[in-house]
Amino acid sequence: MSPVPLHWYLAVAFLLFVLGLLVVLSRRNLIYILMGVELILNASSLVFVAFGSYRGAKGLLDGTVIGTFIVVLAAAEATIALAIVLNIFGTFHSVRPEDPNLLKE
């Protein structure tokens, strides 16, 4: 019985990353875009933990710690970004990223 190779984890992580990137690039709603960012963050976290785990116990520890930090960062990012989105909605009555354009031209 052979274990799952590291490549598989990385492939899943890359898929997740690309899906997140697509969400960020193609959606026209700020809340979707933030969700895409979450997917990208999770993909990177998964890479850290997978690499760490395949290095052994010490590596897994480091991967876990970095993954935790990513969770913390994501939580902070989500709160702030959602607060900004709500504020933008309050000001422009829109959640589309192209609508706040007071500075344009």
């Binding site: 274990p3 799952v4 590291l6 490549h7 785990s53």
Partner: peptide, 8 residues
């Protein structure tokens, strides 16, 4: 990293 060694 040995990609085939499996998780810790």
């Amino acid at each position: 990293v040995d990609p085939d060694r499996g998780p810790a």
